[in-house]
């Protein structure tokens, strides 16, 4: 990525206290969760207070909320693939009303900002979701899942730059909060979709969502109840890195990078590829507190990087470079 473009990137600012900021939302560290990978109510019922004391994520991203309740796909919904997981969960959720009335009061109590992920099948639905979220002080930002087939041609809204641009252009004004667009990787040109989203008013982008995938039973029938699903986990990390880099190079708004992150090293790779924030998803299934450990490791580096930055008044260039590569600060922050 050309140095001048990185230098121009304004997204994540470092406050005087050394905290991160994403679209105006303060983050204690750069690790959040991928939508739909951490049912908080369930996790709280198992881990109790320990989870609240050690919330692994700097912001909590909800599962995808739709206007009508969804039961999800028929089982089986999971298939373990080579270094990865295929799922066809099918976005089960209680619907917008029940989410706002029953789940929001719980999520409000979190010590971290809440990002609500929503999905609508058309402009009207998305507008309704945006308007409802705008009225909720507890929601810091909205993430729009655009991996939803549109009614007209069955293609995902997010897979075509023009469709995505049109949908966002018609709905963006209905949301009074920062808008994150969760891009789909199942498209010919993810960077073009990213640019379209940016142009139409997205404040940040997150990627990658799962890659469309299938598995067969020994008798040749599809394994998953929904026939096909999405692939996640370490198997997709190299693809995710390439897509994050392509998007980060194309847009000025911040990028939340995810896809098979299992360690601080992997998180650093995404930050190096141009992400400002990273998300842990499938790996939380293996270890529910892994994200906390990644964050701790990155924060340790960030503390060092902050130290390096103040020291850089005396010794500029090499240390600055080091601080940027350590993870959380874009070049812009160092010059502020």
């Amino acid at each position: 990525m050309p140095a001048d473009r990185q230098g121009a990137r304004p997204p994540v600012r470092i406050s005087s206290a050394g905290a991160l900021e994403l679209c105006g939302i303060a983050l204690a560290h750069p690790v959040i969760n991928g939508s739909g990978t951490y049912d908080l109510r369930a996790a709280l019922s198992v881990f109790g207070q320990a989870l609240l004391d050690a919330m692994p994520f700097a912001a909590y991203v909800s599962k995808t909320i739709t206007i009508a309740p969804r039961q999800g796909n028929p089982p089986p919904r999971l298939w373990e693939s080579s270094a990865g997981l295929l799922n066809s969960i099918g976005l089960p959720n209680p619907g917008l009303r029940a989410y706002l009335e029953e789940e929001l009061p719980l999520l409000e109590q979190l010590s971290v900002p809440l990002i609500t992920n929503v999905m609508g099948a058309d402009v009207d639905e998305i507008r309704e979701l945006f308007e409802a979220c705008s009225e909720q002080p507890a929601i810091a930002a909205v993430e729009l899942n655009v991996s939803c087939p549109n009614v007209k041609d069955g293609l995902d809204i997010g897979s075509d730059p023009r469709t995505l641009h049109e949908v966002l252009r018609k709905t963006r004004a209905a949301l009074s909060k920062p808008l994150i667009v969760k891009l789909t990787p199942n498209t010919a040109d993810v960077a073009a979709c990213a640019a379209a989203a940016e142009q139409a008013g997205a404040d940040a982008l997150s990627l990658i969502n799962t890659l469309r995938a299938a598995a067969m039973r020994s008798d040749g029938r599809p394994w998953l109840g929904a026939r096909s699903g999405g692939l996640s986990g370490p198997a997709i990390r190299p693809i995710a890195l390439a897509q994050v880099a392509a998007v980060a190079e194309r847009v000025q708004i911040p990028v939340i990078g995810m896809g098979g992150i299992q360690s601080a090293r992997h998180a650093r790779d995404f930050l190096a590829a141009g992400a400002s924030v990273v998300a842990v998803g499938t790996e939380s299934f293996r270890d529910p507190f892994l994200a906390a450990r990644i964050a701790a490791e990155l924060s340790g580096e960030r503390a060092l990087a902050n130290f390096a930055r103040s020291a850089a008044i005396a010794a500029p260039a090499p240390n600055r470079q080091g601080a940027r590569r350590a993870g959380c600060e874009p070049a812009r922050a160092e010059t502020e």
């Binding site: 049912d39 198992v46 969960i89 939380s284 529910p288």
Partner: peptide, 11 residues
């Protein structure tokens, strides 16, 4: 078939 064991994934 199970992934997380603690209700997180709905799988």
């Amino acid at each position: 078939p199970m992934a997380c064991g603690y209700g997180a994934c709905h799988g």
